[in-house]
């Protein structure tokens, strides 16, 4: 009787254990944005993106600290944080959504899989629906890299750009994301 109970309980818990094995994470993902106008090029990198991806459900989330974006010029970084992103008030940006186009079985085999991510992007305290195409690449050693390029418009997130510098900053920023995921313990 007891043995039967334990067996049933183990069977009932099995899906949970299996699902937990299909979570991937990174704490050192890369994101950069670039704005190019005839007057000025602006570029910033952030190598501290945290992301968790549950391959079974497709659910994915990213989060970044705005103050972890680094610019070549210190003044540009200060203006970005203080005048545009107000990063003391809104310290983080995030994306929550789902990845479609790849299955847990495919991730066991080397290859490049086209995917789409759809969800909500939150920047400067303003949420917007977002959709982006990307790729998942599985290398021969089982390493998993996710890459995507998309655009973000500052004005969509309530970021005010003064008229005097509007022509120095592109209408839409080109954003690139690159994550090397490892399996969650």
């Amino acid at each position: 009787m007891n043995l039967l109970r334990i067996s049933l309980l183990s069977l009932a818990l099995l899906p949970l254990a299996l699902a937990a094995q299909d979570r991937y994470m990174t704490r050192t993902g890369h994101i950069d944005f670039h704005s190019s106008t005839p007057l000025e090029d602006i570029h910033a990198d952030n190598d501290k993106v945290t992301s968790v991806w549950d391959v079974t459900t497709g659910a994915i989330e990213f989060s970044v600290l705005i103050k972890a974006f680094t610019f070549e010029k210190a003044l540009m970084q200060e203006h970005f944080n203080e005048n545009y992103m107000e990063s003391s008030k809104f310290p983080k940006a995030s994306f929550k959504g789902a990845v479609k186009g790849v299955t847990a079985d495919q991730l066991a085999k080397a290859g490049t899989y086209p995917v789409t991510a759809e969800g909500t992007i939150s920047i400067h305290g303003v949420d917007q629906p977002a959709k982006a195409a990307g790729t998942i690449t599985v290398d021969g050693k089982g390493g998993i890299r996710a890459e995507s390029k998309f655009q973000v418009k500052p004005e969509d997130h309530g970021i005010k750009i003064p008229g005097a510098v509007r022509k120095n900053i592109a209408e839409a920023m080109d954003v690139s994301v690159r994550m090397d995921f490892t399996k969650m313990p």
Partner: peptide, 18 residues
């Protein structure tokens, strides 16, 4: 120090740069 970053599923790290 750039701050503290985690997620719903991951406890946070403190991030130091440069």
């Amino acid at each position: 120090c750039a701050g503290y970053l985690g997620s719903d599923l991951l406890p946070g790290n403190v991030i130091l740069q440069r």
